[in-house]
């Protein structure tokens, strides 16, 4: 599903975020990327989602080399990937329902089918009764679950999450981690960048240190 082949990422004026990184994530695998702050976890996810481009090596997602990807092909790659962002990136002027609807509208789903999928995704994360609420009316844990619902509503084959349990209390964090496990169990490839790797038992671990993969 994902292949990193001697990948490097250097930000100007010469800061190496990732150096000579090689690894493979198989289909239906669950992988946790851990490491200290600034180790390169978020950069790694951004390279997979083609938010950033590598400065060396090759990143392959679903067999597609992202360095040669045309700008016009980028949206179609991202529609196959579900993303949960560190800062959630929820739209606060739209309801819970409308936030989850957005990826389906982008993909051009028929409104009736889209509405069914949104309700199913909200039900899956336990927000079915809050569909008319605005995100600002939700708790931190609910907002995180909303971000997950939006990431999975498209039924992506790959789910990326950047610190999905940050700023959550232990109970809520465990609840959120359980949702990721559930998606993994139904065959979704899951890659999570987190400090709290203990919340994801059974997942393969990749340990990053100053942009390098520890053995």
């Amino acid at each position: 599903m994902i292949r990193f082949d001697r990948v490097s990422k250097r930000y100007p004026p010469g800061l190496d975020a990732l150096s000579d990184l090689s690894f493979v994530v198989a289909e239906r695998e669950m992988v946790v990327v851990s490491g200290h702050s600034g180790a390169g976890k978020s950069t790694l996810l951004k390279l997979i989602a083609a938010v950033e481009k590598s400065t060396g090596g090759a990143v392959l997602v679903g067999g597609q080399n992202l360095s040669g990807l045309a700008r016009s092909a980028l949206p179609f790659l991202r529609r196959r990937i579900g993303m949960v962002f560190q800062d959630q990136k929820l739209l606060f002027d739209r309801t819970v329902f409308e936030n989850v609807l957005l990826p389906l509208s982008i993909a051009g789903f028929h409104p009736r089918e889209a509405a069914q999928r949104v309700r199913a995704a909200l039900d899956k994360v336990g927000l079915a009764s809050r569909e008319k609420a605005l995100p600002v009316m939700l708790s931190g844990g609910e907002q995180q679950r909303l971000a997950i619902a939006r990431a999975v509503v498209n039924r992506p084959s790959l789910l990326l999450a950047d610190e999905p349990t940050a700023h959550l209390d232990q109970e809520t964090a465990e609840d959120v981690a359980r949702i990721f496990h559930e998606f993994h169990h139904v065959g979704v490839t899951v890659l999570i960048a987190t400090y709290a790797s203990e919340l994801f038992p059974g997942a393969r671990r990749l340990q990053l240190d100053h942009g390098r993969l520890l053995p």
């Binding site: 989602a49 179609f76 991202r78 993303m83 990136k89 739209l91 957005l102 990826p103 982008i106 939006r150």
Partner: peptide
Amino acid sequence: RTEIEVSQLLGATDGF
């Protein structure tokens, strides 16, 4: 601009 950024990350084309 936040909405534009989010839409791009979710796979929106320039047309959308």
